[in-house]
Design a protein around this nucleic acid. Structure first.
Length: 519
RNA sequence: GGCCCCGUCGUCUAGAGGCCUAGGACAAUACCCUUUCAAGGUAUGGACCGGGGUUCGAAUCCCCGCGGGGUCACCA
């Protein structure tokens, strides 16, 4: 039997990082067994802004490379692909109704004419008695054919009849054995009472079960908050005569000890805002994006993370391969992921560790690919044009090579490329002051400019030798020249190798920039 | 409140009765390397929620506390 897993996001307008972690486990499980990963949109509400709410979610999965075998099309307009269409719950209500009618006819479900006031009172009563309220509806014991007639005449919530005194047990693939007595399970609602248009919409629990059966889902992997729903859902599977899938409930992702939520997650820091601005974003553009937040996948894409780093980190949060492996490629994950090594306790999101993992993955990206992936960031910042001439490409390649491990995020390219590529260099006042507060610095630079002028070769190695000889002849260390020179030719006190910088700039530009400082 | 789940360094985790004077990683700190910044190297500090059992022996099993979370909807 092929493994079929599914992830069912609600259309919220952004892809939640915690949701991705759960989806990742589903996806990895399917990949591991050569199975299928299904995406279903749980949009039982009105789907007016569907595209707007669904597209960011699909985009997020596509960017991460977590492709789905069946589900909504990329258009996000409500169309689907795959053998069990449609994959939008909002379009599947007739299917839920048909399943419910079957249960009604079989006497497994019944209409409940209890008024909300009555229910309210019963609930209140139970609360005072410090007992759980287990709802059982009015027409439980009415014969099936009569209930069918009654229901046709007067719609009401349709409830599943739960047989009391039984045990529902299952073995959760991550939590282990779980057992519940049916005496504590209320008769669950299948279909709601009619809305203003007379439509009886399925309730989440029922829609999920009907869909999971229809889609042939073999492994239901979802967040732990659904653990308590499971016995109820098992009863529905049984009533529907379906075989049970394997359930696996995974713990949540926390942020500083609390469930990760948009509200409790910090806004962009000043540094991050500066970074986005350097990348060509305007204040309005930044403010207009409420998904530029560590909780949303879009943030990581926009600031230049690698999808494989996100996947590695997220998977590692709540799962381990062994006692020490931290760095894992997606391929390794696909080959080794198992539900039984998912942790029991919730895990806290740690931005620093993610950043470290990102750096590790970045080390493996070949220069040519880095160039390609940095280009969009440079273009957005208008540092390079829409088309790239071969000279610029070559310079860019040199910059990226010289930057080495310093480029952690693709957006970091701006910090290294701007001082080289921008004609009018931005001078950091603090660095400038520090570099030239000793008047001897300018004199030294003036002499060094003459040395540079007569340099025969202008490659990094020659410049290294030449410069060291120069400072040695002065009885100085390189440090005496390093900062003034760097600030003079780049405007900043930080950057990659000094000699690489000179070499990439070339003799003319280097001398020219030196001259502007010295005059 | 009932029911359910969870509790190992600051954080992510390893740990299925002796391999545990509890291992790894991130973070922190110090030093080394060095051309600033990274990267790299070395080192240091840092945890079994508490209390009782069971056992020759418990982070691991049992009980009781404590703490955190989930769930009890015509939300998903």
């Amino acid at each position: 039997m092929t493994v079929r897993t599914r992830f069912a996001p609600s259309p919220t307008g952004y892809l939640h990082i915690g949701g991705v972690r759960t989806a990742l486990f589903c996806w990895l499980l399917a990949q591991r067994h050569g199975g299928k990963f299904v995406l279903r949109i749980d949009d039982t509400d009105d789907a007016r802004n569907r595209a707007e709410a669904v597209r960011p979610i699909l985009d997020g999965f596509r960017w991460l490379g977590m492709n789905w075998d069946e589900g909504p099309t990329d258009s996000a307009d409500g169309t689907s692909f795959g053998p069990h269409q449609p994959y939008f719950q909002g379009q599947r209500n007739p299917i839920y109704e048909a399943a419910a009618m079957k249960l009604l006819a079989e006497g497994k479900a019944y209409p409940d004419y209890t008024t909300s006031a009555e229910q309210e009172a019963a609930r209140e009563h139970a609360k005072l008695a410090r007992k759980p309220y287990v709802h059982r509806g009015t027409n439980r014991d009415v014969p099936a054919d009569e209930n069918v007639k009654l229901y046709a005449a007067k719609k009401a919530p349709l409830l599943l009849k739960v047989e009391p005194g039984l045990k529902v047990s299952f073995v959760d693939a991550v939590k282990g054995k779980h057992e519940t007595n049916t005496d504590t399970i209320r008769d669950p609602m299948l279909l709601r009472g009619p809305d203003e248009n007379g439509l009886c919409r399925a309730v989440y629990n029922f829609a999920t079960v009907v869909d999971d059966i229809a889609f042939g889902i073999t492994h239901v992997v979802r967040a732990i908050e659904h653990l308590e729903n499971t016995p109820t859902q098992i009863l529905m599977y049984q009533a529907l005569g379906a075989t049970l899938p394997i359930f696996g409930h995974v713990p949540q992702v926390y942020y500083i000890g609390k469930k990760m939520s948009k509200r409790d997650t910090p806004a962009l820091s000043a540094d991050e805002i500066a970074k986005f601005k350097a990348c060509g974003w305007t204040e309005e553009e930044i403010k207009g994006r409420d998904d530029l937040n560590i909780i949303a996948v879009a943030y990581y894409k926009e600031i230049g993370y690698l999808p494989e780093a996100i996947i590695n980190y997220l998977c590692r949060l709540g799962w381990s391969l062994d006692a020490e492996t931290e760095f894992m490629t997606v391929e390794t994950l696909k080959q080794n992921f198992t539900l039984d090594r998912v942790t029991d306790a919730p895990g806290n999101y740690d931005a620093k560790k993610l950043f470290w993992i990102q750096g590790e993955h970045m080390k493996l990206v070949p220069t040519a690919e880095k160039v390609e992936r940095c280009i969009p960031f440079l273009q957005r910042a208008k540092l390079i044009g829409d088309t790239l001439d071969s000279d610029t490409r070559l310079t860019l390649t040199k910059i990226i090579e010289a930057s080495g491990d310093r480029i952690k995020l693709f957006s970091d390219i701006l910090a290294f490329a701007t001082p080289i590529l921008k004609q009018e260099i931005d001078r950091d006042p603090k660095a400038t002051e520090k570099a030239f507060k000793d008047p001897a610095a300018k004199l030294l630079l003036t002499e060094f400019a003459e040395v540079l002028k007569s340099a025969k070769s202008f490659d990094a190695a020659s410049l290294d030798k030449l410069t060291h000889e120069f400072v040695a002849s002065k009885g100085l260390k390189l440090n005496a020249l390093q900062l003034p020179l760097r600030v003079a030719i780049t405007g900043t006190g930080m950057g990659f190798g000094l000699f690489d910088t000179l070499a990439i700039l070339g003799k003319d530009v280097s001398l020219q920039r030196l001259a502007t400082v010295l005059n």
